[in-house]
């Protein structure tokens, strides 16, 4: 199995770059302890021991022994480095949110974007409070504004009419 296939397994439940890197680090550390510290513990227990996040434990629970048998002492770092480098070539969507959502909501968003834009994309989440609500994103070097500003601008004429009616009524 090559790097791309391993990456695909990882990306099944991973939608953001930080999650990907964090989970890859957990896998690397587990493999290091397994190969070089001769730790016989299984991956789930290992995650509990290192107090990994719940979301990471859920996402990485699909990785079975078959997955870890893909790694050997000789190829572990090769594969890990390959997996680290490959993230740079993944299609990236930079998502700007007004508030930082929780992990499950981010997962939902990730699923939506993969469903509607690109099944291979990975999301880089940033926080921009000036958006107030809604979101904006950069995809294929294009900025797309779906924030409050965008929707208010769409309704500007309506808002102006409301204001005029109000002004006439009051003045």
């Amino acid at each position: 199995m090559n790097v791309r296939e391993i990456q695909q397994i990882l990306l099944n439940n991973t939608y953001t770059k930080p999650d990907y890197i964090r989970r890859l680090t957990l896998i690397r550390e587990y493999l290091e302890s397994r190969f070089f510290a001769e730790n016989k513990i299984n991956f789930s227990d290992y995650l509990v021991n290192v107090k990994a996040l719940q979301i990471d434990r859920e996402a990485l629970s699909v990785l079975d022994e078959h997955f870890f048998h893909l790694f050997t002492r000789d190829n572990v770092y090769l594969l890990i480095n390959g997996l680290t480098e490959s993230i740079k070539v993944l299609p990236t969507l930079t998502l700007y949110l007004a508030v930082m959502l929780d992990d499950y909501q981010i997962i939902e968003l990730g699923k939506w974007f993969r469903q509607n834009l690109n099944p291979d994309l990975i999301i880089d989440v940033r926080c921009n409070p000036t958006l107030v609500s809604g979101c904006s994103y950069v995809w294929n070097n294009r900025y797309k504004d779906l924030s409050l500003h965008y929707f208010l601008s769409k309704k500007q004429e309506l808002i102006n009419r409301i204001l005029d009616a109000y002004a006439k009524q009051q003045l």
Binding site: A98, L101, E108, L109, V132, S133, L146, S147
Partner: peptide, 20 residues
Amino acid sequence: LGKKLSLTEHSEIIFQSLEQ
């Protein structure tokens, strides 16, 4: 609104805007 909307409401608004 910034501090009045919950995360769920924010999430709903985001999905609504994406669907729109």
